[in-house]
Design a protein around this nucleic acid. Structure first.
Lengths: 217, 217
DNA sequence: TTAACAATCTAACGATTATTGGAATATAAT
DNA sequence: ATTATATTCCAATAATCGTTAGATTGTTAA
């Protein structure tokens, strides 16, 4: 009776443990974008390959991620959609804490012209009608793995040379991996300096999907 | 830049850490039912008062719970609804793992006549019309803090002496604290032995509310 | 075959965490 | 005041975790 209960809560806590490390959370967020190799993950999360491998092992043990081998590369991916939803849920709960802890977060939250309050469905509608241009500033492979409807891929790294593709008479909405990612922020800063009407959308695909909105491939 | 990111993920991981202990999860589940004192929590979770206090301190540090002092008692409660939702979310993810690990869970999942597949809204409708009787077998104070609509309080401890209150010609649906709680299971077993048409509803109030359904007080 | 590369495994360390027992606070009851 | 009760604080221990370095496995390219 008691033993059974202990067993049950232990199982759930294994998932909690897996989400109890900052590095692992960052890896999960990256995997919300697309499947990636250990090397890609280690680079994008700014950690050693060894450490990434160790953390990924933990995540696999907790069944939050799965792997696929292709040649000498091992691709990791989320085991199911629910993992991304849990990440969004967890981060949402933490965000309140972040603001009232007066964290450096303020430098991210106060991005001047953001779309925090704007209704997501109205953005979707305006994007469809062409009233606004939605750009996805993540690397191209992440865009290919899934992106917001009507979004155009324009990776941050190519933004400078491809500015001409964007209209100056329409609002441009940029998004990236989610609220903790700085790519959209940087893109908006650049665009605004060049005279574009640029806005940042805090959502990434995980947030978008967790709220039941559609994702395209 | 990197430091800021590190800081952000660290904050989220604090919540993960708080949910990384089986005991703390059990405490959270108990607090989903109603506010409780340290002593009540320690008894219901089968741990020492000291240990309960230490775990509750962790939860308070992570801002998942709040306290209220009344005389010599300290009442703990969830800091916000989102905490209960996160618990439901987390447990949901773990449940798949539990079944394919062939855990002792099977002894709980196979409760014979359960309502796992039955639509929640139809239960609600049938309860309103009186086609079924919904009983809440948790302790009375938890019922008072919030319960399913049209439910009647009939704590497991009093069930035997109050059997006469239940009809034999209608289905009786029992629920308790959630899928990990055994009270409804025991109630159903007793009722079925006495010839009632009894069924177990796996939801507790947290699960019910997390799915957007109404709760009464 | 050999060389280069991706990824994992092993061992080790310091840091953190869970748990317990004993002392200390605070409040209520006598 | 004194006693009893609820809770927390402090210290100590064993267990677990994060991280790094070195060796190892498996795969591709030469």
């Amino acid at each position: 009776m008691r033993e059974l209960k202990t067993l049950l809560y232990e199982q759930v806590s294994r998932i909690g443990k897996a989400m109890a490390s900052p590095k692992r959370l960052e890896l999960i967020e990256l995997l919300c974008q697309s499947e990636k190799t250990v090397e890609m993950l280690s680079q994008q999360a700014d950690i050693s390959v060894k450490l990434a491998s160790a953390h990924l092992k933990e995540l696999r043990l907790a069944r939050l991620v799965d792997t696929r081998k292709e040649g000498k590369y091992v691709f990791y991916r989320l085991a199911e959609q629910g993992v991304a939803d849990l990440w969004v849920n967890l981060r949402g709960l933490a965000e309140e804490r972040l603001v009232d802890l007066q964290m450096g977060l303020s430098s991210m939250v106060t991005h001047g012209h953001d779309l925090r309050g704007v209704d997501r469905k109205s953005i979707l509608k305006q994007a469809r009608s062409g009233e606004v241009v939605v750009i996805d500033v993540r690397p191209g492979d992440e865009f290919a793995a899934g992106h917001l409807p009507y979004a155009r891929s324009l990776p941050l790294t190519e933004l400078k040379k491809r500015l001409a593709e964007l209209p100056k008479n329409k609002p441009v909405v940029a998004y990236c991996r989610g609220p903790f990612c700085m790519m959209a922020k940087d893109a908006v800063a650049l665009l605004q300096k060049r005279g574009y009407q640029a806005f940042k959308l805090d959502d990434g695909v995980a947030e978008w999907r967790a709220r039941g909105l559609p994702i395209e491939q």
